[in-house]
Design a protein around this nucleic acid. Structure first.
Length: 895
RNA sequence: GGGCGGUUAGCUCAGCCGGUUAGAGCGCCUGCCUUACAAGCAGGAGGUCCACAGUUCGAGUCUGUGACCGCCCACCA
């Protein structure tokens, strides 16, 4: 590799190359360390939240992956044995929907194809379209171990799913039964509580009169939002304490339209305060009524089919859609004078998370997990700190959910997914749960068995990944080494769907794992990526930012840096392109700094390597001690921030170091030395190379592409490792910190900035150099003398003089705490403007002075505040006093 | 009905355990193509930190109340 870099930074020219190289070279593939292998250091493992096989990468993924990649690359460089495990989720409903849609466009349907052929078709679909995200991830340089990639429907993972199901069943934690579940009439499957999204709706509350049997003059008025369900009513409940209805206890009512006798029952469910205090009871179509039905041993009448059309139990309404039936029923009731009223009523309606169809509570036979025992342990795991949440208040949300948890309906009436390992005997109806198809029914011995038609909730299998992905139920070395995983990074939207389930299932099945049962030791919940106007990105709004498209325009490094620099825990990210533009400029800055370095290397010729290490003699120079000190200090701060997931702080630190200190100051300071005598420039170049190489390592987890490119160029084709990602991340070392150098540089910078400031104010021609005078104490004067060249060059000074006379009365002079500085320049300054500037500063300082005096005059403060704070304030008060005097005397001079 | 988060410069956001002068990027103004970079350089303007009350020697930061946004959870017809 040549150390020549093209003149312009073009991410498109370098990124695909390295992305391909990383994958090809299997740089991030991790062999399982064998027992006792000495070199295996501390382990850091992380599971990629498996994207849906139907998915395409969106900004949320990119944020998630950027955060994971930064952490993983950082840990890897810190010497951890690092595994980032990728995979894909089969996404039952979503994928089935996708393929069904495709079939529909061909005039076909899954029913026409039949189950076998349909599943075959889904596999084909997956082969063609199912790996979009992997391709995108590779392009973005995610440092995952592609050799270990899994798919949740892989054979081994499917076997593990069966094993888990069978064990849970054996343990009595899985049961099958007829209950009210959330039913999506479009997907024609049961869905879990979590898959129902609630929406506030201003609808109607219909009041219907139910006449008393045998006495049509009397009636009870009930209220309902779903009048069509009245066809399935089996009772009307009133509160036992409700005096208004006492006379009807034990009586029966005549259900209108159906002309069925139904009893009046008493139950606490009926709230006398609500509506009329009388509730219709429909056990087959409402979860509360279902419970009431059980309590009172009432029949269950199901009036709808799986598409929510009225069935044969609905009498004259059979065959109608539920909403058409509603209209017709209301009309019929009104005709009969039984519609007592319609009131506006706001209530929340449940919709299918996938297709937004209104969910129908439906009585059906499903498989459930008895969740309470699992939830108990999962709650303790977080209470005991076995799992730590960041931001920590998500633990609260987690507890809230765990403590109010309901049994989990895990069966789905879909075709795509893990089929439930249960077999029904067609003879005696016995159900056998087994690891493989039984040859004969254990109950009756007959061999006419049929596997259960249902498949498992997608989240059932993904909830197992932290152990099944490592080979469970086999006792694998991977499980020993990588379980529990170190961290989980994900969005809050799947906190319950996935995170909570992993904790429950992991703790349960890994209870005897030597390193702990929890599936991960830490959870970092990232925020939502919104658009620049803080709107949620959505297809319907058309404000979706395509990460790949943005990446193509600005480069992956710039987009990653944008996300990292905004990823403050707990705060949503308003993604704005102007920000990305700024970070592309940053990448460009890095690029050009590298070009500058290489340019000088070329000019100097042979005899020097950029990577030979820092010549010790260079440390005799202030600017070198300073930049080294800054570098190591920043490295320490970056490490600290990354260890607590403060990505934005870490990113801003490296940004400010590289641009604001290394480029703006250090490179400018050493420029003249690069063109001096050859030996001198070689020495400084070697030092520069050392700092630059360190800076690249510091930047590398955030901007892996550009750092990789420049790093290889620096080693001129002979790098000490195959990738910068495989070398050490900088760490703070106390002996590398030079407090004094940092303080001294700060003073020099202040002098330079002040002179520049005067020049701008006095409108000195930029090209024109002027003499300058400095009045300072001996220490500062010595410092300035020693660094005269630096000051003269960076502040455009032609001859820096030192004076024993205060300069404060010189027009345009700047006064700081440590010095006063002025330039020799004839042009008259704008007296009025100068006055205004001084007055403004004076006012600010006087404000500060008053504030300081008040505090220092306060005995309580002196007594209670820590000594360093008091000391600091005293020192500052003295400084402020000096500054005020200086400005005041300058002001008098202006008059 | 519960619970949570936010409100800081024109815009988008930082500001960690309360501590001297509240920061950044973009935008804006002034001046520069100074041979690494105009995707740049130098200088500058711009803030009663939502309101009120409290705790404290000291509050953008902690507590309470309110306002306005936003989110999550919930089987009340």
């Amino acid at each position: 590799m040549s150390h020549e870099l093209p003149k312009t930074y073009d991410p498109a020219a370098i990124e695909p190359k390295w992305a391909g190289y990383w994958v090809q070279e299997k740089l991030f593939s991790v062999a399982t360390p064998q027992p006792g292998s000495p070199e295996s250091g501390p382990v850091f493992s992380l599971i990629l939240p498996p994207p849906n096989v139907t998915g395409r990468l969106h900004m949320g993924h990119m944020l998630n992956q950027t955060e994971m990649d930064i952490i993983i690359r950082w840990r890897r460089m810190r010497g951890f044995l690092t595994l980032w495990l990728p995979g894909t989720d089969h996404a039952g409903i979503a994928t089935q929907m996708m393929v069904e849609r495709q079939l529909a466009s061909e005039g076909s349907s899954r029913q026409k194809l039949g189950r076998e052929a349909f599943i075959q078709r889904v596999w084909e679909w997956k082969k063609h379209y199912g790996n979009a995200i992997q391709g995108q991830m590779k392009r973005l340089g995610a440092s995952v171990d592609w050799d270990r990639e899994y798919f949740t429907m892989d054979e081994n993972l499917s076997r593990a799913v069966t094993e888990v199901f069978v064990r849970l069943h054996e343990q009595g934690l899985i049961y099958r039964g007829m209950y009210i579940v959330n039913w999506c009439p479009r997907c024609m499957t049961a869905i879990s509580d979590l898959e129902v999204v609630h929406e506030e709706l201003s609808g109607k509350l219909y009041q219907i009169k139910y006449p008393v049997s045998g006495d049509p003059s009397q009636s009870v008025t009930i209220a309902t939002t779903r009048p069509e369900t009245m066809l399935a009513d089996v009772a009307v409940a009133v509160n036992p304490k409700d005096a208004r209805y006492r006379h009807l206890h034990g009586k029966t009512l005549l259900l209108p339209l159906m002309n069925r006798e139904i009893p009046v029952i008493t139950d606490e469910l009926a709230d006398p305060e609500f509506g009329t205090g009388a509730v219709k009871i429909t056990p087959a179509h409402d979860p509360n009524d279902f419970q009431v039905g059980l309590r009172h041993k009432l029949p269950q009448i199901n009036i709808m089919d799986d598409q929510a059309r009225m069935n044969e139990n609905a009498g004259p309404y059979a065959g109608m859609d539920r909403f058409a039936a509603r209209e017709k029923i209301l009309k019929d009731l009104e005709e009969r004078g039984l519609l007592a009223g319609i009131k506006d009523h706001t209530y929340s309606i449940g919709k299918c998370d996938r297709c937004k169809t209104i969910v129908e509570p439906r009585l059906s036979t499903q498989w459930f997990i008895k969740i309470a025992p699992l939830a108990k342990r999962a709650t303790e795991a977080v209470e005991h700190g076995e799992i730590v949440f960041t931001p920590e208040n998500y633990a609260k949300t987690y507890f809230e959910w765990m403590r109010n948890i309901h049994d989990w309906c895990i069966s789905r009436q879909l075709w795509w997914g893990h089929r439930i390992p249960a077999w029904h005997c067609l003879e005696c109806k016995e159900i056998t749960v087994a690891r493989s198809a039984p040859l004969q029914c254990p109950q009756c011995g007959k061999n006419r068995l049929e596997q259960d038609q249902d498949v498992l909730d997608t989240w059932f299998s993904s909830g197992l990944l932290p152990f099944t992905a490592f080979g469970w139920p086999e006792k694998t070395r991977d499980l020993d080494v990588f379980y529990p995983t170190s961290l989980l990074i994900t969005g809050f939207d799947i906190l319950f769907f996935w995170v909570a389930r992993m904790v429950m299932l992991g703790c349960h099945f890994m209870a005897d794992h030597p390193h702990g049962s929890v599936p991960f030791k830490a959870v970092y919940i990232h925020a939502l990526v919104r658009d620049a106007e803080r709107q949620k990105m959505s297809k319907t709004k058309g404000n979706v930012v395509d990460p790949i498209e943005v990446t193509e325009r600005y480069g992956t490094d710039a987009v990653r840096f944008t996300l990292a620099s905004m990823a403050s825990p707990g705060t949503d990210i308003a993604f704005s392109e102007s920000r990305t533009e700024g970070y592309r400029a940053f990448a460009n800055k890095i690029w050009n700094a590298a070009r500058f370095m290489f340019m000088n290397l070329d000019r100097v010729g042979g005899g020097v390597s950029l990577t030979q290490g820092a010549p010790e003699a260079e440390m005799g120079r202030l600017e070198n001690r300073w930049i080294m000190s800054r570098f190591y200090r920043v490295a320490g701060e970056v490490n600290e921030n990354l260890s607590v997931y403060r990505f934005h702080e870490a990113a801003n630190l490296v940004y400010n170091f590289f641009w604001g200190e290394f480029c703006d100051w250090y490179l400018e300071i050493i420029k003249p030395r690069l063109s001096e005598t050859e030996s001198d420039s070689r020495s400084v170049l070697a030092f520069l190379g050392d700092v630059f190489e360190g800076a690249l390592r510091l930047l590398s987890p955030f901007m892996p592409f550009i750092t990789e490119e420049i790093w290889h160029a620096m080693y001129d084709g002979k790098p000490p490792a195959r990738s910068i990602a495989l070398v050490k991340f900088p760490e703070a070392e106390k002996r590398r910190l030079h407090d004094q150098a940092e303080q001294q540089m700060a003073v020099l910078q202040e002098i330079i900035v002040n002179i520049r400031n005067i020049r701008a104010e006095m409108k000195v021609e930029p090209k024109m150099k002027t003499p300058a005078r400095l009045f300072a104490n001996a220490e500062v004067q010595k410092l300035a003398e020693e660094n005269r060249g630096m000051i003269e060059r960076l502040a455009s000074v032609d001859g820096l003089e030192f004076t024993s006379q205060p300069l404060r009365e010189t027009p345009g002079a700047r006064t700081a705490v440590n010095f006063e500085v002025a330039i020799n320049y004839e042009q008259k300054i704008d007296i009025a403007a100068e006055r205004e500037r001084l007055l403004k500063e004076l006012k600010k300082l006087e404000g500060e002075q008053a504030n300081g005096q008040r505090q220092l005059g306060n005995e309580q403060f002196l007594k209670k505040a820590p000594a360093n704070v008091v000391e600091g304030l005293r020192k500052r008060a003295a400084e402020v006093k000096t500054l005020i005097e200086k400005i005041q005397s300058a002001l008098t001079k202006l008059e």
